Simulated scan of single mutants.
Amino acid sequence: MRDCPSADLPSLPEGFRPKLAISACLVGEEVRYNGGHKVSRFCTGVLGEHMDFVPVCPEVAVGLGVPREPIRLVGDPERPQARGSVHASLDVTAPLIRYGEKMASSLEDICGYIFMHKSPSCGLERVKVYREDGVTLPGTGRGLYAQAFCAARPDLPVEEDGRLCDPVLRENFLVRVYAYAQWQLLLATGLTKGRLLAFHARYKYQLMANHPQQYKALGRLLGSMGRAEVDEIAPRYFSQLMAALRRCATRGTHANVLQHIAGYLRSSLDSPGRQEVAQLISQYRQGMVPLVVPLTLLKHLFRLHPHPYIRDQVYLQPHPEALSLRNAI
């Protein structure tokens, strides 16, 4: 797709704080079955500096007390029930599903959700499922509240607290959170064909890092758009965009993007300068330096040799620099 002007595309204000829903136990609320919590220092200490949390505990919300009898998933891993681990007559399957659907519609202004891992209500994957006699089944399930919530909000960035310990998954999640926030701002300020094309142009290199094939597919989708089709195409575009961004970028795809971006400096640098850039990109590809090293050099060079198209690229700063997410990938 050709370079596209900004078309007065709105940008998130400086200091913008996305709102994230989060399992209440992860921010230190004592809502677990044993009266304790599972506070995440990364969430409260690092993310909390840059975003606002909406704590949610579905088990308390559906009437289970603190402390309480633990619940577990029982039956078919594809369609389990949430039952008491001591008293099988305790069944909160329907209430958890209803609450997930309710919160999916009421939490309209969130840009992401961090769930408690392995929870029978909130776990996104690998939640144990049991037979009626208490023996663990070979398959795994998904927390019933999380399943209902995510089914109703398939485009919303979601992640488990445990997976945020992985630097690549952590960075990927925050890329999606800020992309979601940027899209919500675009919708709130007025969607036009020009703005949609400009949005896609700004995400060109981020998409090429995450899913190069899908970048081309989205370009073809937008290329087929007529003037009256913006409202029809936009939701399809955004769903496919968020699906593409869920794929984690690799050193290889990052290196390819860095080379593309460096190409805009070709006429501005002498031979030693071009060699320095190429060497750092090669060192990154080989795992010798983190992504922040070649990126820092490129940002410096573009401050000396500005280019309007590169200036607008989300890839260069998809999340606050203070989070230092690219220092570890």
Score class of each variant (00 low, 15 high):
V177H: 04
P235T: 03
G223V: 01
Q213T: 15
Q240E: 11
L218S: 00
A209F: 05
R246N: 09
E229Q: 13
L197W: 02
A228C: 10
I233S: 00
D231A: 13
G223S: 08
R195L: 03
Q240K: 10
A201S: 13
E232H: 10
N210I: 00
F199K: 14
S239A: 13
A179I: 09
N210H: 15
I233R: 01
M242V: 06
V177Q: 07
Y237I: 02
R246G: 06
T250M: 07
L207N: 09
H200R: 03
N210C: 15
G194R: 12
L187C: 15
Y178G: 00
M208P: 01
F238K: 04
R227L: 12
V230R: 03
R227E: 15
A244E: 04
W183A: 08
R227K: 14
T189E: 15
A228G: 07
Y178C: 10
Y178F: 15
T192M: 04
R236K: 12
K193R: 13
Q240H: 12
K216C: 11
E229T: 10
V175H: 13
L187Y: 03
A217G: 01
Q184C: 11
M225A: 08
A201W: 05
K216H: 10
A243M: 10
K204W: 08
K204V: 05
K193Y: 04
